[in-house]
């Protein structure tokens, strides 16, 4: 399970980083979202990966999984969702205000919009 988990996190992070470095706002937003998934998975794994254990301490259960990373991931997910929504709207705003969806405002290979 550890190998699968680590590979998934790694692929997500690598794809996210690649997309975040692209020149247009949409891939950047998608890249940041993928990165945040990778980070959430990583945070989740910091308490150790276990299956079939109680999530919180109970009287009779001898072993239990660490509940704290789950709380951390929950916080990170909430913040991540809000920020994704915000950056999508912001990217649209940039497209409207600057007239280009390039992160540095280039218009060179921007196809002309047909206003008809």
């Amino acid at each position: 399970m550890e190998a699968l988990f680590a590979t998934t996190t790694g692929i997500l992070a690598a794809s996210g980083l690649y997309l975040a470095l692209r020149g247009r706002t949409f891939p950047v937003v998608v890249g940041l979202t993928l990165l945040s998934y990778a980070v959430n998975l990583f945070l989740f794994s910091t308490g150790g990966l276990t299956t079939g254990k109680a999530a919180v301490i109970s009287g009779d259960a001898g072993e239990y999984t660490d509940p704290l990373p789950q709380a951390l991931v929950l916080t990170a997910i909430v913040i991540g969702f809000a920020m994704t929504a915000f950056s999508v709207i912001l990217a649209m705003r940039v497209r409207g205000d600057v007239g280009s969806d390039h992160v540095n405002g280039n218009r060179i290979d921007e196809p002309r919009e047909d206003k008809s």
């Binding site: 975040a20 706002t25 950047v28 940041l32 920020m83 915000f86 950056s87 912001l90 990217a91 705003r93 940039v94 205000d97 600057v98 992160v103 405002g105």
Partner: peptide
């Protein structure tokens, strides 16, 4: 502002 803002946010 929107332009600088996007860089800042990302």
């Amino acid at each position: 502002r929107t332009h600088a803002g996007f860089h800042y946010v990302a």
